[in-house]
């Protein structure tokens, strides 16, 4: 019965992912791409948690926790890279 509501939620999430991916491809600077990647990661965490409810499987929650930790690490590492990259040139 609730199938069409699932469909609405997934459509909205998909549009959010689409916008961030467009910014990721367009992004004039490297920092814009990192921002788009950070936003995309949080949207994907929400998507995985929602999929746990749709498929009624507990494993997705473990995946979401691990993905959240990895996304935070990834953000910090990219920021470090961005910071160190121009210190050499200037």
């Amino acid at each position: 019965m609730m199938d069409w509501l699932d469909f609405i939620v997934l459509t909205l999430l998909g549009l959010g992912v689409l916008f961030t991916v467009i910014r990721f491809v367009l992004g004039p600077k490297l920092s814009d791409r990192v921002v788009a990647l950070d936003t995309l990661n949080i949207i994907i965490i929400g998507l995985i948690v929602f999929l746990a409810l749709v498929f009624e499987s507990k494993l997705y929650l473990d995946i979401a926790i691990v993905y959240a930790v990895l996304a935070f690490l990834e953000t910090v590492v990219f920021a470090r890279y961005l910071e160190g990259k121009n210190n050499d040139n200037s």
Partner: peptide, 15 residues
Amino acid sequence: IIGAMFFLLGGLGVL
């Protein structure tokens, strides 16, 4: 649905 709409707004804001 409210959460998904905020995700959509976030994507639109980034764009």
